[in-house]
Computed example of a mutant assay.
Amino acid sequence: MTSATFLFSPVEADLRILSENLIQLVGTRHPKLFAAAKHLFGAGGKRLRPAIVLLVSRATMLDEDITLRHRRLAEITEMIHTASLIHDDVVDESATRRGVPTIHSLFGNGVAVLAGDFFFAQSSWYLANLDNLDVVKLLSEVIMDFAAGEIQQGEILFDTSLSVEAYLKKSYYKTATLFANSCKAAGLLSDVSSETADHLYSYGRHLGLAYQIVDDIFDFTGSADTLGKPVGSDLKSGNLTAPVLFALAEKPYLEVLIAREFAQEGDLEQAIALIQNSKGIEQARELAAKHATQAVEHLNDLPYSESRQALINMADYVLSRLY
């Protein structure tokens, strides 16, 4: 399996600068928010989204160095992603994320909600200071999509009539929108053509969808240790993902268990077993692979560079997380 660290080698130095800047962007005026920022940004993580922004920036600025605006866009992207995670953890009542205590478990729901709001507000302020209206529109749309995705997900819990198309639309709102719009924004800051900007958007969209589908597969194939939460947590909460939707067509009794919201003892375990013994997981893998392949096709117009190759390899990395 290719490691994310290896893929990020063309922007390794850029990511070090980003990590140093993130906490400073929050500022020290509000001690609790600063403490929350240190906890979040100090934990590291893969920095996947800002790394992709930086790779797109370098792949579209071959004859000169990337600008401070490219770097700030990468930082804004990570701030928006982090803010969404804080709010997700409050909604999901998650005590940990990837084994690390969540903000609301450390500081309480009030501080967590305000911290998420503050990070969204800070990212919007820094975004406005990029002085590029098209980029402002793209990233503002991401914040709206996140909220729409959460509301939409709440409205379709335990809904066995959910189509794969509707699932993908929700997945776009919750995950792929940030990939897509930040990739396009990086291209716009490099003054690429409108056609290339649209290809960068499509690259991010398909990559983000593949990433989310793979994450949803993990709910059934991962361990509690690697997931940072019990296996089947999404299913238990009524969040029906690709493996479930594909399995429903093959295992009719699964619909009965979901319809009664796993009210009887053993219902959840039985549902997980039905999904794992169906073709649902394999079909979900095929769907993820389809989107990963489509993502790469949208990079054909970019000239060769290490950064472009890393973006191509990113699609393989997203799929390789399954194995």
Rank of each mutant, 00 (worst) to 15 (best):
S3G: 00
T5F: 14
E12Y: 04
A13C: 07
D14E: 15
I23A: 12
V26F: 03
G27K: 07
T28Y: 14
R29G: 11
H30S: 14
K32V: 12
K32R: 09
F34A: 10
K38N: 10
L40C: 13
A43T: 09
G45Y: 06
G45P: 02
R47P: 00
L48R: 10
R49C: 09
V56A: 07
A59I: 08
D63S: 15
I66H: 11
I66K: 07
T67C: 09
T67F: 05
R72I: 03
E75S: 12
T77N: 02
E78V: 06
I80R: 06
H81K: 05
A83N: 00
H87M: 12
D88P: 01
S94C: 01
R97E: 08
G99P: 11
P101K: 06
I103Y: 03
H104F: 01
H104S: 00
S105T: 14
S105D: 10
F107W: 12
G108I: 08
A115S: 15
F119V: 00
F120M: 13
Q122F: 01
S123Y: 09
S124D: 06
S124E: 01
Y126H: 12
A128E: 10
A128W: 01
A128T: 08
V135W: 02
L139V: 01
L139Q: 00
E141N: 11
V142G: 00
Q152G: 14
Q152H: 08
Q153M: 02
D159H: 12
D159W: 05
D159A: 11
S161T: 13
S161K: 14
S161F: 05
L162S: 14
S163M: 01
L168S: 04
K169N: 14
T175H: 08
L178A: 02
A180M: 08
C183W: 03
A185T: 08
A186I: 12
L188G: 07
L189R: 07
S193H: 13
E195D: 14
T196Q: 15
Y201C: 03
S202F: 08
G204W: 09
R205I: 04
G208R: 04
A210L: 01
F220P: 03
T221Q: 09
G222C: 06
L227I: 12
K229F: 11
K236W: 12
S237I: 00
G238N: 11
G238S: 13
L240A: 00
A242G: 06
P243A: 09
V244F: 04
L245Y: 05
L248W: 02
L248M: 13
A249T: 10
E250V: 04
E250F: 02
L254I: 09
E255W: 00
L257W: 07
I258F: 12
R260Q: 09
L268Q: 13
L268V: 02
Q276D: 06
I281K: 08
E282Y: 11
Q283T: 07
A284M: 06
A284N: 06
L287V: 04
A288Q: 01
A289W: 02
A295K: 05
A295E: 10
V296M: 04
V296C: 01
L299D: 03
L302F: 11
L302G: 09
L302I: 07
P303W: 12
S305W: 10
S307P: 07
A310D: 06
A310G: 07
L311S: 02
Y317V: 05
